[in-house]
C-alpha cells in the first residue's frame, strides 16, 4: 500500500532479492500499488508506505486496518510523517498557493479542486491515524531489515527492532566526546564541504559537523557516517525520546557552539526533517495564529 510517499520503500522492498522471492513462493501477493486491483482485499499482512496527507490516504488506510490482520508501517513517512510532513510548517492554503500559483514554472496556474483527492490540513503519520502492529522506519528502510521482517512474518513472529541511537552502530571514533570535561567539542560548526579534509575515522560532531546520529534510531547500520557523510536522521527518533527536533536542540546546545548552529543551520529543517508530523508542535489546524 502506497500513501503519500515516494515509492522508495517499495524499491527497497524489491531490493530484498531472495527474500521477496521466498515471499512470493509462500504467500499470495493480493495487492500492490502497481497492480490493477482497485479494492483493498482481505490480507494477513499489509505493508503501508507513506504518510496520510489527503482524504483518499485516510480512507484507504481505514480499509487496510479493517481488512488486514497485521499492519506494518513501512518507512519513515508511515512511522513519523517523513519529508512530506514538513508542509505542516505552513497552512494548507499557503501550501497550495505556493505549489500551484507561485513556483517559477507556473503559468496561469490554478489550484485543482476537482477529480483529485483533497489534501488534509496537515500531514499525519500512519500511526496517528490507525494502530499498527509493527513500525519499521528508514528512508527507505534498509533491504535487510525488510527481509528480516518478511522472514519473520512468514514464520508468524515479527522481529525485534534495535532501540539505541545511531552511535551504537557507528564505528567512528569518539575522543573528546567521552572526556569528562564540560565544554564544546569544537570551535565552530561547519558543513561537510567546508572541511578541508574529512577525517574518515573521527566522530562528525568532533569535526564540527552537525550529525543527527545521537538523536536518531539505529537500524540502518550507520550507512551515511560509514560513507563519510553525517547522519541526516532518517530513521526518526529513538523509541523513548518523544520527538527528534527538541532532542536535537537539547542535546547539541551544550556540545556545539549554539550561536554557530543558529547562524549556519536550519534548526527546524534539520531537527524535524523526517518527523515533523509526530512532533509535539501544534499542527497548523491547532494554531490560533498564522506564520508571520
Amino acid at each position: 500500500m502506497w500513501l503519500q510517499g515516494c515509492s522508495g520503500c517499495h524499491i527497497s522492498l524489491l531490493d530484498t532479492g531472495d527474500a521477496i522471492a521466498e515471499v512470493a513462493n509462500a504467500a499470495n501477493v493480493v495487492y500492490t500499488p502497481i497492480s490493477d486491483e482497485r479494492k483493498v482485499p482481505k490480507a494477513d499482512i499489509v505493508l503501508v508506505e507513506g504518510a496520510v496527507a489527503n482524504e483518499e490516504n485516510e480512507e484507504l488506510l481505514t480499509l487496510v486496518r479493517k481488512n488486514a490482520d497485521t499492519v506494518v508501517a513501512l518507512g519513515t513517512c508511515a512511522c513519523h510523517g517523513g519529508i512530506g510532513g514538513l508542509r505542516n510548517l505552513h497552512r494548507l492554503d499557503q501550501v497550495m498557493t505556493r505549489a500551484f500559483l507561485e513556483t517559477p514554472s507556473t503559468a496561469d496556474g490554478v489550484v485543482p479542486d476537482e477529480g483529485v483527492p483533497q489534501l488534509n490540513d496537515s500531514v499525519r503519520s500512519v500511526r496517528e491515524v490507525i494502530d499498527v502492529d509493527f513500525a519499521l522506519p528508514g528512508c527507505p528502510p534498509p533491504a535487510d531489515s525488510i527481509a528480516r521482517l518478511l522472514a519473520g512474518a512468514l514464520e508468524g513472529s515479527l522481529p525485534e527492532l534495535p532501540t539505541h541511537n545511531l552511535c551504537e552502530e557507528c564505528s567512528r571514533l569518539r575522543q573528546d566526546m567521552l572526556l569528562p570535561q564540560r565544554g564544546f567539542i569544537c570551535d565552530e560548526v561547519r558543513a561537510v564541504f567546508e572541511l578541508d579534509e574529512v577525517d574518515p575515522e573521527l566522530c562528525f560532531l568532533e569535526q564540527g559537523v552537525l550529525c543527527m546520529g545521537p538523536t536518531t534510531q539505529e537500524g540502518c547500520g550507520a550507512k551515511c557516517p560509514t560513507g563519510n557523510m553525517p547522519c541526516r536522521g532518517c530513521m526518526g527518533p529513538t523509541p523513548k525520546a518523544r520527538e527528534q527536533g527538541c532532542k536535537l536542540i537539547d542535546s547539541i546546545a551544550s556540545i556545539l557552539p549554539a550561536g554557530a548552529i543558529m547562524y549556519l543551520e536550519d534548526v527546524v529543517g534539520t531537527g524535524y526533517r523526517f518527523s515533523l508530523p509526530v512532533s509535539i508542535c501544534p499542527k497548523p489546524t491547532e494554531k490560533k495564529e498564522g506564520k508571520r
Binding site: H164, N165, C167, E169, R174, M177, L178, I185, P214, P239
Partner: peptide, 24 residues
C-alpha cells in the same frame, strides 16, 4: 536504560560535575 543508550557521550560533555562517563 541500556536499551536506549548508545554511548554517544552527550551527557559526558553536558555534565559540569564530571558525574557522567561512558563505560568504554
Amino acid at each position: 536504560d541500556d536499551t536506549a543508550c548508545g554511548g554517544c557521550g552527550t551527557c559526558v560533555k553536558t555534565c559540569y560535575f564530571k558525574a557522567c562517563t561512558v563505560d568504554l
